[in-house]
Design a protein around this nucleic acid. Structure first.
Lengths: 147, 147
DNA sequence: CGGTTTGGTCAACCACGTTGACTAATCTAC
DNA sequence: GTAGATTAGTCAACGTGGTTGACCAAACCG
């Protein structure tokens, strides 16, 4: 049951997050998109770098950027110093979604601490850190999924 | 970080499982397939019931069954008592994959207990059970993902 | 018996991923 | 400084896993 419990814990948090995001005006954000917005980050990035951060091909990253551009979460801009590169940046709408995600995650983690206690939640985190490869956390950018 | 840690824990187990399954002659099994084989179970089922167990439409379940039939893990048979139903059953190859999955999961969980101790692993499981909806465990069939 | 429900399938479509091929721009080395 | 290698982006084809809608045949039920 361990794998299923881990999946259930993850999906419960993600599903609750997106239910609340939908209420707050981000109904079109899908679970993947939060990871992408986070990986883009406040400073912006490029499709190739995004693919690297997410562990997918640059083509897959490019197509996902296309969708998020169409939804108004990302925008592309030229790089004045390298004509090959196309910068990918958060729009104000994208930044709003990212910020709301962080706030909602804090609230969801708080719900867990009310059920389990802060020490148990921290113990889960410590234990999982101990048994998972460090390279899983290329996305560990300050401010995201914190709490 | 909590959601990412839960995802990392799950994916680490699933990735390790499939790396080992590939070594044992089941290279074509994808992560989804283990859930499907488990949901089919030793007694077999139908596409509609399978979709219900997995939480997807009967059409999606049917297409997945098609793929696993093509790979030799499942087979279809007529139901002598209801001409509408088509029974879906594990082939010997499918049963072999399912059994090997169970053995490998036991070994992977054992690795976690060597790092964390049996009590910590059990505590993670108890805590996750306490904060996730019970209906996540429609797949909690004896013998699967145990350990 | 007639109407509804159920199981399966087909078609069209979408999201997300892959690999391979290709262009254009930049970097590097001679 | 130019030739060759590397890098960024895109296009095309395809695979997998999911959706909805439509439809048929069998079963169930008043």
């Amino acid at each position: 049951m361990l794998p299923l419990l881990l999946l259930a814990g993850f999906r419960t948090l993600i599903d609750d997050l997106h239910a609340e995001l939908a209420r707050q005006g981000h109904a079109e954000l899908r679970p993947l998109h939060g990871f992408v917005l986070q990986a883009v980050g406040a400073d912006g990035t490029t499709a190739s770098e995004l693919g690297h951060r997410l562990g997918v091909s640059k083509q897959a990253a490019g197509k996902t950027v296309d969708r998020l551009v169409a939804l108004g979460y990302l925008e592309r801009a030229d790089d004045s110093r390298d004509a090959r590169r196309k910068l990918v940046r958060l729009t104000p709408h994208g930044l709003d979604g990212l910020r709301r995600s962080a706030v909602i995650f804090d609230a969801l983690r708080q719900r867990w601490t009310e059920t389990l206690g802060a020490d148990r939640v921290a113990a889960i985190e410590d234990d999982l850190r101990a048994v998972t490869p460090a390279n899983w956390f290329r996305l560990d950018i300050p401010g995201w999924f914190t709490g």
